[in-house]
């Protein structure tokens, strides 16, 4: 039954499942409670521009996606501060512009990108050792920032106006949170791809939120749920020879529905 554990690529895939779940738990919690799921979705699609840039420059696309997605996050943050453009419109624009840039970059590099699909829809079994190192380092950075700025993040998520009144630098903290979302998106790219990854940020936290009102417990519970559901999706995709990213997303969606009905 567990013969698949002998494969090195499967071992790497399991490590990847744990690493993505940490990012999902820590950052996905804020994505859900601050209600910025679609904004995060826009950043994730925009990150594809970075993937394309990586191809174009001949560097690891995951690495190239780091500055690119942070830039996308910060420009989203800048738009939020301006009242004249609606956030909804900005989300739509950023979403497609990022993807369009990615496609053009790939075009410029003689057109053919063999593993392009894995960045769009994810492919947890093609995660390399260097990908794992990048994910690990990003996870550590994410956890440090979440820990250091927890009071600030809770403040801007709950009541931005009051936070500002008590002297919290809400603009900076909002930017930092968006940058953090950008980093966790990079962690997730290889596993589920830019198109599907918003499900991993949103669903584990959305399930966990039904069972606890404590933010720390919410993060831990979403991380555990992330590990279980990602692993389950991975195993199912291996057994039935299905696309891993899509299988993981559907397993999570099924778990969400289930938890919703149990809760009712």
């Amino acid at each position: 039954m567990f013969e698949f554990l002998q494969y090195e690529f499967m071992q790497r895939a399991f490590i990847a499942a744990v690493l993505v779940s940490v990012a999902c738990g820590a950052v996905g919690t804020y994505v859900v409670i601050k209600r910025i799921v679609s904004l995060s979705g826009a950043i994730s699609h925009a990150a594809f521009g970075g993937v394309g840039l990586g191809y174009f420059l001949g560097v690891n696309p995951v690495l190239a996606a780091i500055p690119f997605s942070i830039l996308a996050a910060i420009s989203m943050g800048a738009v939020r501060e301006k009242v004249k453009i609606s956030q909804d419109t900005a989300i739509g624009i950023l979403w497609s512009v990022g993807m369009a840039l990615g496609i053009l970059f790939i075009n410029l590099k003689s057109g053919f990108a063999p593993d392009l699909f894995s960045y769009l829809f994810g492919s947890i079994i093609t995660v390399s050792n260097s990908d794992l190192y990048i994910m690990l380092i990003l996870d550590i950075i994410i956890l440090l920032i979440v820990l250091l700025f927890r009071n600030e993040f809770i403040g801007v998520s709950f009541d931005e106006e009051f936070s500002q009144v008590v002297g919290l630098h809400t603009t900076f903290i909002n930017m930092l949170l968006l940058a953090l979302i950008a980093l966790s998106i990079v962690v997730l790219i290889k596993v589920v791809g830019v198109i599907l990854l918003i499900a991993l940020l949103a669903i584990p936290a959305a399930i966990a939120k039904q069972y606890t009102y404590n933010i720390r417990k919410l993060m831990i519970l979403s991380t555990i749920l992330g590990v279980i559901l990602t692993t389950l999706g991975l195993v199912l995709s291996f057994i039935f020879n299905l696309s891993s990213g899509a299988t993981i997303v559907l397993v999570m969606a099924a778990a969400f529905l289930l938890s919703y009905y149990i809760q009712d």
Partner: peptide, 17 residues
Amino acid sequence: FPINVYQTVLMGRYHGL
């Protein structure tokens, strides 16, 4: 929002980064 009464009031005591 996942926050209790005590934590809500604690925000009033925020001192800085």
